[in-house]
Nucleic acid binder design. Structure first.
Lengths: 158, 158
DNA sequence: TCCTTTCAGTTGCGATATGCAACCTAATAG
DNA sequence: CTATTAGGTTGCATATCGCAACTGAAAGGA
């Protein structure tokens, strides 16, 4: 087994590793943030993020390969290519927002721009938090890591 | 200021960029996952993750530097060093869980081990989701990116 | 038509980061 | 007093990154 394959296996054994295999590179999150903010074209990403063109090309390719972005030619201008989020990509929003809120709280110290608001109430979205199955907010003290099989046995015993 | 310059500034100030400065490297998330799962010592991280020793040393140092882990000598055995999450570190849990749930859903296709449960009800935590200020679940269609100042003006006008 | 600009990349090359194995020092165990 | 453990550091090879320059196809303009 090659080193790369070994690494893939380590990463794949948990959802975090599996996710990082796809979006773990330094620029991927920023490209996704751009996509969520409406960037669609190569030049838009390049000028707005200040990313090197070859890296951008590589990352966009990877994100497309992994089904996070869709790459379509623009029918109106055949030079242009449109990148947009797939469902799989859109589903990364909680990750992006958690990361952003953490950065605002602990690093930059202030909310950043633009703000994501509820379209109807015009109020900013709530902070991301961990909740119980019935919707109570949980802190780390209220939670416990349990082996999946042990949990199953607990349930069977009850 | 040009539109490109404006946007570049926006991204530089964005919480995501700030967060990635600190936890954006390839192994950082996996080290944090280990910490959340109870790993405390250098050798534990090393054998558990299979990370190169020099990289682990470097990453632990960086996480300590940024106040995400605390490094304490073990009073019982002075060879040992204990790394544990600070409040700032613990507050990364929503990021880790969002990432993990996404990976489970879209990549590995199944829930991973161990499971994080509500200590009292013994039920797995809920999926991370974006919510309005009053707790409704929001999908991307229900939200809108708004410039902070525009939002303020909207509020003033009302 | 011919010339220029735009768009989406690719290529070459040097700088940086990463992975691996071996080594080191202090503390503890036997 | 020797072996082992913990937590690193060092040297070296490879992989990835960032920058600048270049390419090639497609518009746009005179």
């Amino acid at each position: 087994m090659s080193r790369a394959e070994q690494l893939r296996e380590v990463f794949a054994e948990c959802g975090i590793g599996a996710a990082l295999e796809v979006v773990g590179e330094r620029w991927s999150f920023l490209i996704l943030r751009g996509a969520f903010n409406g960037l669609r074209h190569f030049e838009e990403f390049q000028t707005n993020l200040g990313i090197a063109r070859n890296i951008l090309s590589n990352r966009l390719g990877r994100l497309v390969e992994h089904g996070i972005l869709r790459r379509d030619p623009d029918p109106a201008d055949r030079r242009k290519v449109t990148y947009r989020l797939t469902e799989k990509g859109k589903d990364l929003l909680p990750v992006l927002l958690s990361l952003r809120q953490w950065g605002e709280r602990w690093i930059s110290g202030h909310p950043s721009n633009p703000v994501l608001v509820d379209r109807y109430t015009r109020k900013p979205i709530a902070p991301m938090m961990v909740q119980s199955a019935d919707g109570r907010e949980l802190s780390l003290r209220d939670m416990e890591w349990v082996d999946r099989d042990d949990l199953q046995r607990e349930a069977d015993a009850a």
